[in-house]
Amino acid sequence: MEDRQLNSSGCATDGGKCCGGGITPFLVGLVVSLIFGWWVFPDMLYSKKEQPIRFSHKVHMESAGMECKQCHVLREDGTFAGLPSTASCADCHSDVMGSDPEEARFVNEYVKTGKEVKWLVYQIQPDNVFFSHAAHSLDGCNQCHDFKESELCAQCHPDVANSDSAPTHFENKLTGYSKQTMKMWQCERCHANENHYGVTNSSNACFVCHK
């Protein structure tokens, strides 16, 4: 026992001799962790999910000439309906209208059964966030800006107006949120901008956005 301890301490004393390798191990460690941290880790953190139905905003906007707010409705009491229900889609799609097999699948699997589509929301916010779509209106913002409706929406939402298929949804495995869920600092790009205050009556107060 005594010997072993002496040996081990002996090794420690002549450690100076085996001080080989120079800076290489340090650099190797650095590079390995950088690769892990920037490339491997983000991939591990998110799971990829696709929308249950390949939905084309482009077809609806361009061919059908619709506007965002026709489906993403503000209700009379000022609350926002968010995604349309199957019933409201069925106003047009009561039967298969086009030749797209995805539309046919939608009609058969959802409209006919009355099931709701479990759409994945890219901007889903935590329960503690209160977001008023009524407050972020074209009228309000266009006092100074010159947004088209889809441009205004795209300030926060992915710009899907011209896309034929919905982007992949990245879900954070730890938090359960979408990769694109806005963080508070992103809201503050406008809310902490004092130029907005007098015009939009916005503010950066906590309770403007929290519930």
Binding site: L74, R75, E76, D77, G78, T79, F130, S132, A134, A135, S137, N201, F207, K211
Partner: peptide
């Protein structure tokens, strides 16, 4: 207690869609 702050937000939103001044 938040003075049912959410009701304040809802009242403002209702005013907005009805074209009234939320303040």
């Amino acid at each position: 207690c938040s003075f049912c702050h959410h009701r304040f937000m809802q009242a403002k939103d209702k005013a907005r869609v009805e074209g009234r001044d939320p303040n």
